[in-house]
């Protein structure tokens, strides 16, 4: 159960952190704010999940211990969310691939037999529904936009496609969470997730990349080099000044 909660929280925290790197750098003020809003939603979701995980762990653990005092191999996020921002198209493609998964995931999590998880999912689902709406809109605009924007978003999907598989392939703790009636059966949402991706790609007049070899490992703590750099920046304060608080 603990691993499962950390997996959900880590996905949101790391992607939220990545998006926050856009703050002040967005292509336009309106887009900058939209990305920052999504980032804050995700970090808020991560906080709720860490707080819950910390209570279950007991021992005086807090959300900060979980976010700031674990090292790379202990993080359970998928590899997709730690990938670099790249250009705007790359960020949109990464976010869209995550949002399609995240939306149907949270929708199913509302049915969890763990009342706390179900309540958090219900709250998150409203936020994620907007994220998905926003990124879908941008995939379509970029794909069906100029020659330049189309080339960039197409390349972004090409580059990130192999990170898609991990989202829908359960780790052991996910299978156990399903068996316990608290987790989401990824097999049950696979078709809906893929259908949404394909529909939006079609509408964006983009070519669907071919499924080939897929990355795996993030869910069990084998991460790309990027996560180390993210944690170095994110955890610096707590590591350098233990227990520092506002």
């Amino acid at each position: 159960m603990q691993q499962y909660l950390l997996h959900i929280a880590d996905n949101a925290l790391i992607l939220g952190h990545r998006l926050s790197e856009w703050c002040g750098h967005g292509p336009a003020l309106e887009i900058d704010m939209a990305m920052t809003n999504i980032s804050l939603d995700l970090i808020g979701q991560a906080r709720n999940m860490y707080q819950y995980a910390a209570t279950l762990e007991g021992d005086g653990k807090t959300e900060d211990d979980l976010a700031y005092l674990r090292d790379v191999p202990e993080f359970r996020n998928v590899l997709l969310v730690e990938q670099v921002n790249g250009d705007f198209a790359n960020t949109i493609a990464r976010q869209f691939l995550f949002d399609t998964y995240h939306y149907f995931f949270q929708q199913q999590l509302c049915e969890s037999q763990d009342p706390q998880l179900a309540a958090m999912a219900e709250k998150s689902l409203k936020e994620v529904a907007y994220h998905l709406r926003w990124t879908s809109e941008w995939v379509i605009r970029l794909g069906d936009g100029t020659i330049e924007s189309k080339a960039r978003i197409q390349r972004a999907f090409q580059d990130l496609w192999s990170f898609r598989g991990e989202l829908l392939t359960p780790a052991l703790y996910e299978t156990e969470a399903v068996a316990a009636g608290v987790g989401v059966d990824l097999g049950a949402i696979k078709t809906a997730v893929e259908q949404k991706i394909f529909n939006v790609l079609d509408e964006a007049t983009l070519v669907r990349p071919t499924d080939g070899w897929m990355h795996a490992g993030g869910k069990t703590g084998r991460h790309s080099e990027h996560l180390g750099f993210i944690l170095a920046e994110m955890q610096f304060l707590q590591r350098a000044y233990p227990n520092a608080a506002w």
């Binding site: 336009a28 003020l29 309106e30 887009i31 704010m33 939209a34 809003n37 907007y130 709406r133 926003w134 809109e137 605009r141």
Partner: peptide, 20 residues
């Protein structure tokens, strides 16, 4: 006020900029 290419984007931008 804000910048957007069409009404859909204007509505979403307004949501993100003015109703936080």
């Amino acid at each position: 006020s804000l910048h957007a290419v069409d009404a859909t984007m204007a509505l979403e931008n307004a949501r993100d900029v003015y109703t936080r």
